[in-house]
Amino acid sequence: MKFIRSRRWAFGAALLIQVLWVPAFAGLGGNLDSVEADQLKMKGTLRTTVAAAFTVHEIQTPAGTLVREYVAPTGKVFAVVWRGPKMPDLRQTLGTYFQQFTDAPRPLHPNHAHFAITQPNFVLQSSGHMRAYSGRAYDPLLLPQGVAVTDIK
């Protein structure tokens, strides 16, 4: 990740330092340089924000939903976040973790406005209602050093 400079740590791990326009998007667990075609499927505009410990690739879909993808210095996507009026395509957004998403056990008292999965390598939190959906998913094992779960938002 050539944009990242460790001296920026002085300003905090998640401090945003620059914004670039780069055509790339990968699902959770995917590699940044392997899935540029995915961005075409989203038909959205993409903005890349570079922070000290990770880069954020942000796609605004035509439906108005924002999908943010957190990329580690290794080039691997360790978290995805979505917020907006329509649920994004989670098969694409969750990448190789989509199977774990669909295989996850149901809660004892299910609820249409909330859903959560907590597994050693996959945490997903989905929330909201019609016209306002939000959620995030990450792999705790892929979190770069110095990145807190609260940075994923």
Partner: peptide
């Protein structure tokens, strides 16, 4: 992004100080 929702079966909020049990 808060809401008042009869379709939610509990009050849902962020408070890491409160333990969560297996029922969620």
């Amino acid at each position: 992004s808060s809401f008042i929702d009869s379709g939610s079966n509990a009050n849902y909020f962020v408070d890491s100080a409160i333990p969560t049990c297996t029922s969620g």
